[in-house]
């Protein structure tokens, strides 16, 4: 019996293979809230074409999604809904906080807004901007891919 397997075979670890699969078919949940949602739609539409990264399929049901892009300001009324949608998503799941409002409350430091969505759900990537352009969002998404590939965030 040969010590090394012959022919066309790739060697990897289970973790790496799983990370590779996860990053190449990452389905975002449709979770548009405000201005950022329009830029998120623009990212998925013709000009910027998120399909290049295997993630043009925005899943309408959180049960089929593994990435939540919190696109916009989160009001106090919306916060429990957001948490419920997050809880409905199957593991492994990731969260991108898109824009200044989702990340920190942005310019609206008042009674109505949650000052940062990380008070409700764990956030993996913060995308700055008001609103972040499609390029910024894509950079955020690709950074998340890198984090997953490097094993920094497992699930």
């Amino acid at each position: 019996m040969a010590t090394t397997p012959p022919g066309n075979l790739l060697m990897t670890t289970v973790d790496k293979a799983a990370s590779w699969a996860r990053t190449r078919s990452m389905f975002p949940a449709t979770f548009g809230l405000a201005c950022c949602a329009i830029e998120m739609m623009a990212t998925g539409a013709a000009h910027y074409d998120l399909a290049r990264f295997g993630m043009e399929v925005f899943r309408a049901s959180p049960r089929q999604a593994d990435l939540m892009i919190v696109a916009g300001r989160v009001s106090q009324k919306m916060a429990p809904v957001l948490r419920q949608v997050y809880d409905q998503m199957p593991d492994p799941k990731w969260v991108i906080s898109m824009g200044a409002c989702a990340s920190s409350g942005g310019m609206f430091n008042n009674y109505a807004l949650v000052q940062g969505v990380d008070q409700i759900v764990p956030v993996d990537i913060y995308v700055p901007g008001c609103p972040p352009g499609p390029q910024s969002l894509m950079h955020g998404i690709l950074s998340l891919h890198d984090k997953i590939m490097s094993g920094e965030v497992a699930s």
Binding site: A34, R73, F108, N110, Y111
Partner: peptide
């Protein structure tokens, strides 16, 4: 409605 109430008039 009110899920996106941002309190902009107060701001």
């Amino acid at each position: 409605i009110g899920y996106l109430h941002t309190g902009m008039e107060k701001t």
